[in-house]
Nucleic acid binder design. Structure first.
Lengths: 199, 199
DNA sequence: GCAAAAGTGTTTTGGATACACCCATGT
DNA sequence: ACATGGGTGTATCCAAAACACTTTTGC
């Protein structure tokens, strides 16, 4: 029996340039061989921090599924949500639009499945907090949902619904742009909670 | 680096004795070492068939998640739904009520998580077909939902809803008991379809 | 004829949807 | 003063929930 190669793959999601993006390294998912002797969740978080130079605080992370390859390769796939995205500083990293992935890319099924799971999770939990900065306007929040679900929402109905869920609170900050200042909100708790956001 | 031990665990669900049960072997989940050189789903199905002597036809099977243990052990956990349960013939096998699992049992978290995922899946797909015989009465179907969700349902509302989903069709058979015969139904298609069964 | 499960409709209610105008600011 | 995005309320519709009696059979 051959040695088994065991690795963790991570789909890093972020909203960047008004699109739902995944972070790729050399045009592939972040992938790292590991020794399966500790909690996989912890290992996944460490890899994420090391690779991105971003400390994992309350970034939402979830195991997706496990696949096997030809040569006794086993990969456990995770996805992570990243708030406050920036342009990658190192050249091998690149944000890639999830709705514009070439069919020849090898991780395409994994990414598509990850997007689907993300949509489900966003539908019935509050974890979208993990894709947003600490404070944000309601329009920013609405735009995030619109990007993830690829459909437009009615402003009044959205605000009515989201405020009725009672997981936001107004801050004393205003967003100052070139037009009327907007009230900024924050999540009361940045912890995953099951909440039906959409019908 | 030590050799990695790789295995598949299977949570086999069935409705038996009017309870949601899992099949245990020697009081543990079915667990088998495997070589990860082919599709894990296929291996899981093979193990299921070998262990239970039941051919996998359209039994619903789904990968749950992957856990690691202390000594480089990796287990991929699956769950399977079994229709037409019977008392196990071999003594090492036993049906165990999912809502009555001793806290000392080592697989308790896995089973609890599996139950949760099952409830979830049953809520928004038609896969309950995989826990029922080919034909059944509406009362049987309602009872299955009541067992899985541990709550009672209103008969009239249930029938209205389930028939409106249009995935059942009446057969020409009647269930004959000691009281008024009941119309038997079957699923139009025994394939997983996303359908919101409950609100 | 009686016990036991099958079968069947209507009313009420709450949440989702549709929809348009005024407000505060920067330029 | 005007362009831009922020902010707000009401009416309609549909699906969920609540609710009770008649029917058919075996004994």
């Amino acid at each position: 029996m051959n040695q088994i190669t065991f690795s963790i793959k991570i789909v890093i999601f972020g909203i960047y340039d008004n699109q739902l993006m995944v972070l790729l390294r050399n045009n592939r998912l972040i992938d790292q061989a590991v020794r399966p002797d500790t909690s996989l969740d912890e290992v996944a978080k460490q890899i994420f921090s090391t690779v991105t130079d971003i400390p994992v605080k309350n970034n939402y992370i979830e195991q997706l599924y496990t696949v096997t390859g030809k040569q006794n390769e086993v990969s456990v796939v995770y996805y992570v949500l990243l708030p406050e995205t920036t342009a990658p500083t190192e050249p091998e990293f690149r944000w890639k639009n999830t709705s514009d992935i070439s069919k020849t890319m090898e991780d395409i099924e994994v990414i598509h499945y990850a997007v689907q799971r993300l949509q489900w999770k966003i539908e019935y939990t509050n974890i979208i907090y993990s894709l947003l900065p600490q404070t944000f306007t309601l329009t920013q929040l609405q735009t995030a949902y619109e990007i993830i679900f690829q459909k437009t929402l009615d402003k009044r109905n959205f605000r009515k619904k989201i405020l009725s869920l009672d997981f936001l609170e107004a801050t004393n900050k205003k967003y100052i742009g070139s037009t009327r200042p907007a009230q900024m909100y924050r999540f009361k708790k940045r912890k995953p909670v099951i909440v039906k956001v959409f019908s």
